[in-house]
Write a protein that binds this DNA or RNA. Structure first.
Lengths: 252, 252
DNA sequence: TATATGCCCTGATTTTCGTCAACGCGGGAT
DNA sequence: ATCCCGCGTTGACGAAAATCAGGGCATATA
């Protein structure tokens, strides 16, 4: 579960059509239980709904940029976005991919410290920062929820550091696939495949590698019979055991 | 400011001598303003003092281990500790060095997710987990403080990811020195030197390098005249500009 | 239909950093 | 004092991954 700038939650279609509609939208939000809004009692959801506005963005569109004034708290929605930071010469590090229910934490700083870009057409909720903070003040469980998420995010970030600092290219790729698989299994328990909505270049920038190395890594996993590359970016994991062991960094 | 398992705050000598003393210790704590305790009104510090116990550890001693049940919230004290995670085959990634006032966040999970080890003899406060949570419940500003710190830690963690994933060995070393310098300058504004309390091996495991590469990196910075290596692990930064530029990852 | 563009893969070569090995130094123990 | 042992440094070598280059395929565009 990535935490960076916003929480991702699916807005249902009706709510989206009448954007800024106060009453019904948020209470019926498909991703409500996934997001911080899950901490709100149903009866009080109108309080949230009253400050939210709903937006959509096309693939490749930038939702917010590093360095911008943090005016809003984003609660992202449908499908996936990537969060990244750039070095002056253009080197890029993707710090996370966000899915529905994930939280965008940099809302607590004055300026955004990363850039967020849509991987696919995406729907998201926008909370004016001050108002969102007021709602959090009013509903203590929401604050607790935020703290719990932040804590989880920190643990995930440390895991990510181990990966970036100490794993080999092959282990990084295996780790990436296993993380995606575990996410898929939270939705569909018996799933044995993942869909890569991001490009090889995105994966490379997430793992601290080059696109070529990522490509070769996938090929090698394929020739070893551990994965299968299907159409539409779908990857079927054929040997979960082996992949998990590689991902964990076993001594071979 | 690293966040992992505890907050670091300096206990004054008296307080340390009568460990577990309820009344005076915490209110006079030298690091109180640096730690989460700073959010407590002075009058209520006895509430904190009533649940704390004070400990000390020698250099190299392990304060807590990855996988242990998280029974306590640590609030570390004097000088420095390192926080790390291990891969099955022994590869190590240090996720942070903690200084007085830093917060150890993994208190919100059921088991510790990293190991914490003293770099030098260290004093620390120990809060029983449940009781600490109760105090946080009672004092809302403390919860806010925790959330703010967690948020800052996440930003720092993302910065660390950029470093691990996208910077060269030389840039990593420069970044490390600059981070230490900035910390030194928060205490002594005009400082132009830092003291390395950790070994080359620790630095390597923090930067995702080997000791040899770290050593060569220091040597190169020295021969370029940007730093000076003095006795006692002291490093004098002679060209802050150059070092900062290298650390930032400028295109050369 | 032809052309262009972006993405993915693969090969050849280079470079950075890791590995292996050796040595000096200083502090602690005997 | 002498012996260790851990730490830091340096050199020679090797390997993993980056860089450079090209080619195929699909989708978009003219």
């Amino acid at each position: 579960m990535a935490m960076a700038y916003a929480a991702l939650s699916t807005i249902n279609e009706q709510a989206d059509r009448r954007a800024n509609a106060a009453a019904t939208g948020c209470a019926n939000c498909a991703a409500r239980d996934l997001s911080v809004c899950g901490a709100m009692p149903s009866g009080d959801m109108s309080r949230v709904a009253s400050i939210v506005s709903h937006r959509r963005a096309d693939a490749g569109e930038t939702l917010l940029s590093e360095g911008d004034k943090a005016m809003h708290f984003l609660n992202i929605v449908d499908v996936t976005v990537k969060v990244y930071k750039l070095l002056p010469d253009g080197r890029r590090q993707i710090t996370g991919f966000l899915y529905p229910g994930d939280l965008l934490g940099l809302a607590f700083n004055d300026t955004y410290t990363s850039t967020v870009e849509a991987l696919t057409p995406v729907k998201y909720c926008l909370f004016p920062r001050r108002q969102f903070e007021r709602v959090v003040d009013e509903f203590r469980p929401m604050e607790k929820q935020l703290l719990a998420r932040a804590s989880n995010e920190l643990v995930a970030a440390q895991e990510q550091m181990v990966m970036l600092g100490r794993k080999t290219a092959q282990e990084k790729i295996a780790s990436f696939l296993m993380a995606l698989l575990q996410r898929a299994r939270r939705v569909n328990k018996a799933s044995d495949s993942v869909v890569l909505t991001m490009t090889r270049s995105d994966i490379a920038d997430y793992l601290g590698l080059t696109t070529e190395t990522v490509s070769r890594g996938f090929t090698r996993l394929k020739t070893e019979g551990w994965i299968e590359l299907c159409a539409g970016g779908k990857v079927r994991i054929r040997d979960t055991e082996a992949l998990a062991e590689l991902a964990a960094g076993a001594d071979c």
